[in-house]
Design a protein around this nucleic acid. Structure first.
Length: 791
DNA sequence: GTAGGGTTAG
């Protein structure tokens, strides 16, 4: 009905049927208001069925306040009207008013609730944070004899699924004498909501095979996400065939579900074909396509569809944006990310927490951690996911202290950590080697029952290996009820970290026997373990097997590992030959491994070749230049060494400062090179002096001296500044009783001199000294190191 | 029917 006829209608007196038709045809709240006036003018304001219709319509347009006011003016509302308003309030996001209406109905009227009343009120109670309302209603419904009503049953099943009470939902479902399509569908989608994907598929199969109930598009589109989540293409295919047979396959919901399934299985070609089959694709089907292209790293298509969507005038929603954003960061598209950010701000979508979380993640993955933090600070509604995104942003960028301090802020603001939070924090503990914090988190994990989560367990194993307790890690690993490839990789690389090459290989063999499919990282982990333990032949065998038995195309990282293995073993020429066989362009780490080997084996010629490549590939990296300068100095090529250092100076390249962490009890102490800030510095330097004398007597020769002949005075002093690990170890000797093991953590690789120094110190003080450097663990005992001088 | 946060190598 258009405005002119409506305006005309207002001045006419209409019969009841015309009034009702007018109500039926109203398409906005303003129309309804006029029609309301008309109803009053025509004398139907006490006609309950007309008023009920009006209230019903008002609710449809979300004018629930208006509807309630009108309801209050009705002298004797009947049950039907109560039911309409209970449902309406719930649909308008006021489930509490639904429940209070129900209570009013029971306590203050002569009316008795019927199956509709229960169904609507139970549905409403799914939207209230407190589960007690629904449980109470369930009991009352049973007492009133509606326990096996289909409508009531379906809403109860949905209610229990909403509160993750899967067993209760199942119980209600099983006890229903009669089951219809809606009840089955509720069961299928509820299981999906609770991540019981296999069960959901099983229920769907039962429904299709022997229930005698008709499948509808909702049945199919409810089960499809389960198949998609498990990437069960065969099951999906079966569902697709079935829906073709039943004539449901052209339904837009079904097609959208199939698009998502094929996308998650990596088949964008089929997804595209399905999408083209949709006669009138809606926003949700577009979203499914965009997110599909995004997860399959096709940024061009993803963006193309997004622009198409804007072009045809669709109002995009948060789902569109959240499905699009992750396509930006694998390709380093900072500008596009900023552009979308701007778009979100302008259109107001930014207020959606999922959107701002996705953007926070994007910025942090693009190493724009400050922008991420700004966005996080500005977001009004901070959900658990936004906290987690920010915390993991910090850990992924190596800003562990910030991650931990944000975690503390999170607890202050009463946000309860979940397994995702805990996983990130454990990763932070592993990074800085803080066993004390790690153990504290472990306590929390046990209290909250997160230990059954595989991510948490794996991160815990990693934390223990990186904090030095390889035995504790292994115990957790052995007791794990479930392991995936990452869990195995973590344990293998843990052994590598500690120089236990044979254990790593044994575990790898065991993994193969358990039929776990290895990943690229599996081979990297076991190869690094070989490198740390000097297992040259074993490493070569595994590399060969990786290519020929497992059909892996080696990545540049695998080559770097092999160069490392060969190079450390002194097979420098062989390493170079190996590089020349590479099918991919050698990356900086490949040449870096060769350069490192040149340092150990003092090969100036190859060092110059490797560094030339490195200076071209990675001109900003100071480490390589320092390394070359040292190699040249050792070879007495002082002029060349000086000119390498000159470049560093001229270009203002900054070397990461070395730092060492030592924990005494729960207190962490951080030392930097030449540190004079410590309150006990006098005692430290005095003991350092005393130790120096003793170890020189025992045969220690400072390694740096050989490299320093040509260095200018000022620079010499700079280099001679006592490295942080020496200060930390000395402090540890002062602070702990004889015989106690000392553990320190260094952010860079331990240098040759400190390594030698620590060996001697361990001998004369009869202490076990454990050093974790950027690369691996060194266990010093009685003048020797577990790495066999092989690092 | 579409959508946000987590573990493994270096």
């Amino acid at each position: 009905m258009n405005c002119r006829s409506l305006a005309g209608a207002v001045i006419q007196t209409l019969d009841r049927n015309s009034c009702l038709r007018l109500l039926e045809d109203s398409s906005a709240v303003s129309h309804l208001a006029q029609t309301h006036a008309q109803v009053v003018v025509c004398g139907y304001k006490n006609d309950i069925s007309t008023i009920t219709k009006l209230i019903h319509k008002l609710c449809d347009f979300k004018a629930v306040a208006y509807a309630r006011a009108l309801f209050l003016s009705v002298p004797k509302p009947d049950l039907f009207l109560f039911n309409v308003l209970i449902r309406g309030s719930s649909n308008c996001g006021s489930p509490l008013s639904s429940v209070s209406l129900f209570t009013y109905l029971r306590n203050n009227t002569y009316l008795r609730p019927d199956n509709f009343t229960y169904a609507f009120t139970v549905s409403a109670s799914s939207g209230i944070p407190d589960e007690k309302f629904g449980i109470l209603l369930h009991a009352q419904a049973v007492v009133d004899g509606y326990g096996s009503d289909l409508f009531v049953g379906s809403s109860l099943v949905d209610f229990y699924f909403t509160f993750s009470k899967v067993e209760m939902a199942q119980k209600v479902f099983d006890r229903m004498l009669e089951k219809d399509t809606v009840l089955w569908n509720t069961m299928i989608s509820g299981l999906v909501k609770n991540c019981c994907y296999e069960d959901s598929i099983a229920v769907f199969a039962k429904m299709a095979a022997g229930s005698g109930v008709r499948l509808d598009p909702t049945s199919v589109s409810s089960v499809l996400p389960a198949a998609a989540e498990l990437q069960l293409l065969n099951i999906g295919l079966g569902i697709q065939c079935l829906s073709v047979k039943l004539g449901l396959s052209s339904h837009v919901h079904v097609l959208t579900g199939l698009i998502s399934l094929y996308s998650k299985c990596g088949d964008m070609k089929t997804s595209k074909a399905l999408f083209e089959n949709i006669i009138r694709p809606d926003l949700i089907s577009y979203n499914a396509m965009i997110s599909g292209y995004t997860t399959n790293a096709d940024s061009e298509s993803s963006l193309r569809l997004f622009k198409e969507l804007l072009g045809i005038g669709f109002q995009v929603n948060s789902s569109t944006i959240v499905g699009l954003i992750p396509v930006f960061y694998p390709f380093g598209h900072l500008l596009l990310t900023c552009g979308i950010h701007g778009f979100c701000v302008k259109s107001g979508i930014i207020s959606n927490p999922a959107v701002s979380t996705a953007l926070t993640t994007a910025y942090s993955r693009l190493n724009e951690i400050e922008s991420a933090r700004l966005l996080f600070n500005e977001s009004k509604e901070k959900t658990l996911a936004s906290w987690n995104a920010m915390i993991s942003g910090y850990t992924k960028n190596g800003l562990t202290e910030k991650a931990i301090s944000l975690f503390q802020d999170m607890q202050v603001s009463k946000m309860d950590p979940n397994p995702v939070t805990v996983t990130s924090i454990l990763s932070a503990c592993a990074q800085i080697g803080s066993l004390s914090l790690g153990k504290w988190v472990y306590d929390m994990i046990r209290r909250k029952g997160f230990l059954s989560n595989l991510y948490v367990l794996t991160a815990l194993i990693d934390m223990y290996t990186k904090c030095g307790s390889i035995e504790d890690a292994r115990k957790l690993f052995d007791d794990a009820p479930e392991k995936n490839v990452v869990t195995w990789n973590t344990m293998i690389s843990g052994y590598g970290l500690h120089g236990h090459g044979q254990e790593a290989i044994d575990l790898f063999d065991e993994m193969m026997k358990s039929n776990i499919v290895p990943s690229a990282v599996t081979f990297l982990s076991v190869l690094y373990a070989c490198s740390h333990a000097g297992l040259v032949d074993e490493g070569q065998k595994i590399f060969h097997s990786m290519v020929h038995d497992f059909g892996f195309e080696p990545l540049s990282e695998h080559y770097a590992c092999m160069v490392d293995i060969l190079g450390r073993a002194g097979k420098l020429e062989k390493a170079l030959e190996f590089i020349q066989t590479m099918t991919v362009e050698p990356s900086p780490p490949v040449w870096g491994a060769l350069l490192g080997a040149c340092m150990i084996h003092k090969n100036t010629r190859l060092a110059q070749l490797a560094s030339e490549k490195l200076f071209n590939l990675d001109p900003e990296n100071v480490g390589y230049r320092v390394l070359l300068s040292n190699i040249l100095s050792v070879d007495k090529k002082y002029a060349q060494a000086a000119s390498v250092r000159q470049v560093v100076k001229q270009r203002n390249l900054v070397k990461t400062p070395g730092a060492t962490l030592l924990e005494i009890g729960d207190i962490p102490y951080v030392f930097t090179a030449g540190d004079h800030s410590h309150p006990q510095k006098e005692a430290i330097y005095a003991l350092l002096e005393k130790l120096s004398g003793k170890i020189l007597e025992a045969g220690y020769k400072p390694e740096t001296m050989t490299a320093l002949h040509d260095v200018e005075e000022e620079e010499k002093e700079l280099i001679m500044r006592i490295h942080s690990e020496k200060l930390a170890i000395t402090f540890g000797l002062i602070q702990t009783n004889p015989g106690i093991e000392i553990r320190i953590f260094k952010n860079l690789r331990v240098c040759l001199d400190c390594h030698s120094w620590t060996k001697f110190v361990s001998k004369i003080t009869e202490r076990v000294i454990v050093v974790r450097d950027a690369n691996r663990f060194h266990h010093f005992r009685d003048g020797a190191c577990s790495c066999g001088d092989y690092w």
